[in-house]
Design a protein around this nucleic acid. Structure first.
Lengths: 215, 215
DNA sequence: ACCTGAACACCGTTCAAGT
DNA sequence: ACCTGAACACCGTTCAAGT
């Protein structure tokens, strides 16, 4: 079981979600395809378990965070840690927190995040929505990041800079009368940093939360 | 071409993303599978074009919005309209805004959203991040919503209430010492409304934005 | 309890060939 | 310019059979 998950994660890390097939996994394990079905009922379960497997390390990182007297700062640090894990493993973005099942590291992480809101002057309703919002920012940024080509594997040996640059170039061709905003931000878009973008979105949400909590 | 997209959208609306196969689409169009490849180079392009096709209607809805003297209120109304479209078509959540290609309704919608930030006292950098954050909230909420079973198509003819209730029940079994937050919000989770959750997340982001803009 | 080979029912995509 | 049948190389999943 352990080796099934380890090899599954290895495949995902090496070549992303499409690389994880029962046949590829079986070959790495040196067995037949059907064997995997003894450990796992479906591909969905395999993905869920592989995701929760790596979430164990993320949870450890979060637990190792120092913590401060400001619950919102702590919430930010935890979210940044979580997003960092997704930056390192882009395939995670599509699966993590998808089903916060009973037991499992995802639920424990959810609890960790939520516990910070218990230190804020909020209703239970507001606390639930606050954690949903923070998780939403992470997911939203992860999905956005997932659009970009991983590494330099795209047509014509282009880098991420060239990929963004090609979009930017096309945008600059648009009529400024029709697309004033696109022109306003095209230089910002060109070569932008995903982590920067995430942190800004997170900060807006946390600023709103601080206001709501009167903290 | 038009009918290819119309039928593709029909399939997606009827039974979600897995229902859209070249074979199913060809059958509906009364032709062979290979014919579709004359209009579209790949499945990815088919999905992109189908998505942009329905985004046309969303764009019309957004353009029909009255507008006010408060750019942030206008931003909120537009985001709510966008999210409403995703509630009606859950499959949209996985594809919209994925590639804001040159030309296309998604780009026009992106421009519409961004134009509101031009009315705020922000830097170009802040404007870019603000729109990214708002889109991120929509995407994040849409992904979260996509986890839940569509309609009552799940094991044992359960409703959404029963689906959420089953999770809530399991959560209530957890040790309150280990999971104080989960216990705090389990009643909120049970039977929660996705649109409510989205609006709360959006409001936090917009409150942060208002603070930033000093408006 | 654990593993297997072989099949089944699907996929997206290609291609030579037709009109 | 537009469409086709038939094949190719894959998928996830099942199942009877083995140890």
């Amino acid at each position: 079981m352990e080796s099934v998950l380890t090899e599954a994660v290895a495949l995902l890390d090496e070549a992303g979600a499409p690389a994880l097939t029962f046949r590829a996994l079986a070959q790495r394990l040196g067995g037949g395809v059907a064997s995997i079905y003894w450990y796992v009922a479906s591909k969905e379960e395999l993905l869920d378990r592989a995701t929760d497997h790596v979430m164990g390390a993320v949870l450890s990182d979060v637990e190792r965070l120092p913590g401060s007297d400001d619950p919102i700062d702590d919430l930010r640090a935890m979210a940044v840690t979580l997003f960092g894990a997704i930056v390192r493993r882009p395939w995670l973005g599509a699966y993590f927190m998808r089903n916060v099942d009973v037991q499992g590291n995802s639920l424990r992480l959810y609890e960790k995040l939520g516990r910070q809101t218990l230190r804020l002057n909020l209703t239970a309703h507001q606390r639930f929505h606050a954690v949903s919002a923070v998780v939403g920012v992470v997911v939203g940024s992860a999905v956005d990041m997932g659009q970009e080509p991983p590494q330099e594997i795209l047509d014509g040996a282009a880098t991420r800079e060239e990929f963004l640059g090609r979009f930017a170039e096309a945008w600059r061709e648009l009529d400024p009368e029709d697309f004033p905003f696109v022109h306003e931000i095209v230089d910002e878009f060109d070569g932008h940093d995903d982590v920067d973008q995430f942190r800004s979105a997170l900060d807006l949400t946390l600023a709103g939360l601080r206001l709501q909590a009167g903290a």
